[in-house]
Design a protein around this nucleic acid. Sequence first.
RNA 1: GCUCUGAUAGCUCAGUGGUAGAGCGCGUCCUUGGUAAGGACGAGGUCGCGGGUUCAAACCCCGCUCAGAGCUCCA
Length: 640
Amino acid sequence: MSTEQLKITLPNGDVLQMPLGTTSGEVAAHIGPGLAKAALAAVVNGETVGLMEPIVEDAEIRILTDRDSDALPVLRHSAAHILATSVRELRPEAAIGFGPAIDDGFYYDFEVDEPFTPEDLEAFERKMIDVAAADQMFERRQVSKSEARDLFSDDPLKLERLEEFEDDEVITVYANGPFLDLCKGPHIKSTGGLKYFKLTSAAGAYWRGDEKRQMLQRIYGTAFHRKNDLEEHLHRLEEAKRRDHRRLGRELGLFQFHPVSPGAPFWTPRGTILYNTLEQFVRTRQREDFLEVRTPLMYTKELWEQSGHWGKYRENMFLVLDNESGEHNMSLKPMNCPSHHLYYASETHSYRELPLRFVTLDVLHRNELSGALSGLTRVRQFAQDDCHVYLREDQIAEEVQFLTDFILGHYAAFGLESRVKFATRPEQRIGSDEQWDHAEAELRQALESTGCEYDVEEGDGAFYGPKIDFHVTDSIGRSWQLGTIQLDYSAPERFGLEYVGSDNKPHRPVIIHRAVCGSFERFIAILIEHYAGAFPTWLAPEQVRVMSVGQDWDESAHQLVEVLVKAGIRATLQSRETLGYRIREAELHKIPYMAVVGEREALDSTVAVRERGKGKKQEVMSRDSFVSLLKEKISTRSLT
RNA sequence: GCUCUGAUAGCUCAGUGGUAGAGCGCGUCCUUGGUAAGGACGAGGUCGCGGGUUCAAACCCCGCUCAGAGCUCCA
């Protein structure tokens, strides 16, 4: 029997002739011994596969080494198996669930009687080192479903998964040493390929993510090809901890929480300045093109029935008892939309008036699950910079362009980099396919016309319409979803909204939901972490800390404070303790400017200015120059 | 909400079935300072709340509250 030849195309365009059934590992070896050694996996016709898998058709092939980010999930998935191998060795009674690679690493779920302790994790980690040292091969096998049933007869969770396959389906299993898993792979060659890894945490997780099913114990870990990458990753985690807004919020005295109102922040005087400054910034930017309205915080259920919230969102609403009827037939508002719709409907509108943009910064309440609350990023009471635009269909493109510029401009003011995502129809939705086709086309075209780059997220739209989501990346590379532009054809129907067209006939407007900050609370949390608490001058709760060298110069220092305050600058005097102590205190509180007054400065009306984080490098300037410098920084909202 | 972990001074945390500890912060006094901690003394705690076990509970057990991690990634 003559061997059939395969055409193997390499990334550089070279074509190799290899026999049918050649493995990608053999291809790598054919290219060179260096590559064979470095090879971890391969991409064959777009699919990531292990090196031992035979190639059965002509293929474009790319060998993955530790330089390819595509190779990381393979390593991490193998790390998950090595973890399970170790857990099975130390805790043989543990039933194995799933163990995939995830964005930052991997996890594996186990069903055990006793949850894992930190000591268990350490023991598993040590055992993983042994397993890696044993250099067990990852062997891929294909079996029938009934064979698989025998192989996994002791693994109830695997058996459950197995039953979801067709009876004649070929099942792939992977074995390394004593450990066998139902797994499509691919994996690295052998356990020895795992060198730089760490188990990070353990927590409960529902079997198959279903809260009605049993709780398994999940172990999280991460793994990298290179030591440097692991160290960088761990360093990033440390850095995130250092910048945690909950910690900085306490240290800098910005906000507090109290058990008597879970999920609702208390803003301190400093935090309130920060909040108000942000709010004022938002108001200033919206003064010309938006109409701010204040609306009630509480509504009867009739409104929520009309908006659809009573049916779909009631679990998240704080219902209020009406003493007269004895019923919970009112609710604090979780969103502003219905009140804006009501206001729109209260007058007859001409097509000439549109677009109309109503903005409300009121307090909203949403009853989030207690376990979901977290600092300022997930709260029960917050305020959105919430806007609803009422417009004609022919205005959509122009409006989306306007709003997109507006939103991106907001993030740029804080030095936040942004990314745009276009989210299309979700599975659960209202409205006909024709409506969706139309809405998506409109929105996409509008987005195209802005010229900004965007990713498409299929199925991620709101149930009433497609949307554009705005994500920002903070200074340590974490991504946050903030702003949104959502097209809504449904609410105008529900609320019977109309405008009078040039034909003197009623027409239905379209609504765009728009938020920029998301919520002020969350946005402030992001700012705190982004700046690590060192706010630019215009945002800093205290902008200048004035200190005298000694009490003899207190009077002079006090005069400087008065000049600064009169100029609208947030300045305070600190004259106790030694100068060194006060400098340290001001640095730790991340106050942008320290202004020192001593004999020299008092005599010629100057001030010695020290900038936060710049150490001893100081500049002596006239008091007028200092005031001008500060005014310039503040009015331009300088980020430096 | 569910699983696990935790809750001790304003903050960060140590600690033990038998009298409550440190550092920082705070107060008073001394020091009168030139750019990241001057010194002395002192005040401050129903050890989260409620029950139980015990001669004795802040410590052991149960419940509650609040907080933290996780509960989307699918052989």
